[in-house]
Design a protein around this nucleic acid. Sequence first.
DNA 1: GACCAGGCACATC
DNA 2: GATGTGCATGGT
Length: 222
Amino acid sequence: MSTAATAIRAFYDALRERYGPQEWWPAKTPFEVMVGAILTQNTNWKNVEKAIENLRKAEALDPHALRATPREKLAELIRPAGYYNVKAARLSNLIKTLVDEYGGDLDAFFAGSVASLRERLLAVKGVGRETADSIILYAAAKPTFVVDTYTYRVALRHGLISEDAAYEELKSLFEDNLPEDASLFNEYHALIVRVGKDHCRKVARCEGCPLERFPHHRELPT
DNA sequence: GACCAGGCACATC
DNA sequence: GATGTGCATGGT
């Protein structure tokens, strides 16, 4: 087995042992996962929760209701999540596709291969690679590895990648060295976010990190 | 008051 | 293809 594969698996074991199952994504339904995936772009999850709660209270948290909500009203409701005008437009784009082309039926929207679903999602303006992968993994429960800032930081700080590693490179690093299993990808990404929040922020607190015994403490780019 | 947080599209070179 | 910029709230 390659060095990378050994490290990827050892990291997982160490994280899983320390933290246990994460039971992601923190949402009640696949549709809420989709909404949350847009709202959490470059944004603290706590703020997203407030926005989702506003949508719920306004009874706008389902495909058809959200489709019928005017842009300005939507922006107002999701305000706590920040970038509210941009996100209202992005959310509208995604919901418009879901409702107008798939009748608001998530199973229909999610049908087919991971590759085809990913293309379908990336065609929506406002859905980039991380958002698409999050929806595929956490809403559709299909195997794709989600890369985010935490994935990058943890992998860089612990010597798995170089500073200029691209998204797809990081994604392949995990996918090529793990069995193709949606449950495993789900758990692994959630654990990375967990250790990222606890220990691997821009200003790292490496003491007590479950990955402490691995090569670490490489500086992050500014 | 600065810094940070589970990105993305767009302009420009 | 790489790099820079606007978008915005709420917690530390």
